[in-house]
Design a protein around this nucleic acid. Structure first.
Lengths: 291, 291
DNA sequence: AACAGCTATAGGTGGGATCTATACCATGAA
DNA sequence: TTCATGGTATAGATCCCACCTATAGCTGTT
């Protein structure tokens, strides 16, 4: 299958003239003559009638042209599309994360990325960490943002952010903010935490478990905003990422409760599939995140 | 533009394996490797990820594949179609002629042709001789069948049939059939002829004009069938193609009126466009007619 | 008759497509 | 660990053929 013959045919059919086609193709007229002859022999039909004033396409040539015309249209479109993808003038990136990671750590990056590459569409997929890893493995998302640690041999992991956890209270329990207290003492107060399935909660559970303590929070919520509100109005001690309450702390709406032991930092990571290349757009966004 | 690269890409994308693609393409693996590399360089994007167990197509490669897949589908279809045309398994022939030429001289050929090539569609276009020549020049018909002579430098003419003209009468004017009469005498009887625009009529006009006589037929009709009927019931002397009334003559329903001079034979010709090739199907039909 | 504009043919040449051979790399089994 | 397997990349040589130049040959025009 020699496709270049079809290219010669295509241009010749447009020009109805071997010599002009040759010029357009940057080859010589005998080459066109030869190529058309080859194609005619291969297909077994005459494609052009040679006249003294150029050539005229035959009926069969016309039929062939209808198809070949589309062929080169498609190739043009394809090359155009690839060029757009390459130059980040089109394409999309699908990112998976929990609502809170997306909202608090991803959104600012998405905004600056969109300013720079307005034609790249950013899509978000919500899910828990295992769900995100699953979507990643199924090719439903390009990259994920999850709380660490994770354990999946198929996954390529890059640490992204390090966040501090702390306990905060509102005006009502302000006196706790002055002294270092132990986890055990804390159990005497109502605890506000994320719901059982969240990674924040399992981190908290682990914290108590290491002291042989069992946690049973009075209040379980599903969003950072609600958690902060609950703490503010004095419903109890809230376990929260420090970076997310810095405004409330500085305004004096919330007060930090210091533990008499150090809480380890938690890490947020970017996950991609091992051995699977990111699309140009996804790769660009990935690098954008790591800047 | 090297289209063969796309062919290598296409097969490789189907196989996800350079070596297997090479086998299918009847080339070696290094050639595939080289071709893909060339295409990647040309497009400026990576198309495949090389892994130890073959290759995996990238996102951009996938996008390209969607188009290229269609491209090769089209080429396959095109080659299929051309092959059908070539082998007379599809296609059509459009023929132009007057109703009577079509009916009396063409129809038998059409039937036998359709038996032999049932998938070739035969289309008929009706019109007067000048209209037929016009349609031919505009490419609306592949070939025409017309009464001669014609005068058109663009037209390629082949004589097809030679027909005799004669005068016939029914029972009523039977006595005329015994003697040779002159054209002048004939004017004493009602004449039945085709309408003014027909070539049969202009032939008849010429016949009289050569003798300095002017014809003014009492009855003008538009079809051979009607003309024969008029003659049969004794409305006058009909000018008619002899071959079309042979049955009536032998049955004794009509009687031939002999002129004291010889009427020239008329010719029917096949016309095609000069310098324009017939399609395979049209050419086949043309040859079928001349057999 | 000469010209202009086109295609076909002949024959020679160079570049590049393709090949062979081999390196190299990852994976899985012994 | 070592070896075998199955894949891709690279190097270098070969040789074919795609393309070129030159020219013939055809047709319609000036």
């Amino acid at each position: 299958m020699n496709l270049d013959l079809y290219h010669v045919f295509y241009v010749t059919a447009l020009e109805n003239n071997f010599s002009k086609a040759a010029t357009k193709l940057y080859i010589t007229q005998p080459s066109v003559s030869h190529a058309i002859k080859q194609l005619e022999e291969k297909l077994g039909v005459q494609l052009f009638i040679r006249t003294s004033k150029g050539v005229a396409i035959t009926n069969e040539g016309e039929t062939l042209f209808e198809y070949i015309h589309k062929v080169f249209g498609l190739i043009d479109t394809a090359e155009q599309k690839i060029s757009e993808l390459k130059n980040l003038e089109s394409g999309h990136v699908t990112i998976g994360g929990s609502d809170s990671t997306c909202k608090h750590y991803l959104l600012p990056y998405i905004q600056t990325f969109q300013n720079e590459f307005p034609n790249i569409q950013i899509r978000l997929q919500h899910g828990s960490t295992p769900q995100i890893l699953d979507k990643l493995n199924n090719g439903r998302i390009d990259l994920g943002i999850v709380h660490l640690p994770i354990n999946d041999s198929q996954i390529q992991l890059t640490e992204f952010l390090s966040i501090s956890s702390t306990f905060v209270v509102g005006e009502k329990y302000k006196e706790l903010a002055n002294k270092n207290i132990s986890l055990e003492e804390m159990l005497n107060y109502p605890i506000i935490s994320f719901s059982e399935t969240s990674s924040s909660r399992s981190f908290l559970n682990q914290l108590f478990l290491k002291q042989g303590l069992s946690l049973n929070p009075e209040i379980e919520v599903g969003s950072v905003e609600l958690l902060i509100e609950c703490a503010k109005i004095g419903m109890g001690i809230a376990f929260v990422t420090k970076e997310l309450v810095s405004k409330e702390l500085s305004k004096g709406e919330l007060f930090e409760v210091y533990l008499n032991e150090k809480i380890e930092k938690r890490n947020i990571g970017l996950v991609t599939r091992k051995n699977i290349s990111l699309s140009v757009a996804a790769d660009k966004f990935y690098k954008h995140l790591l800047d």
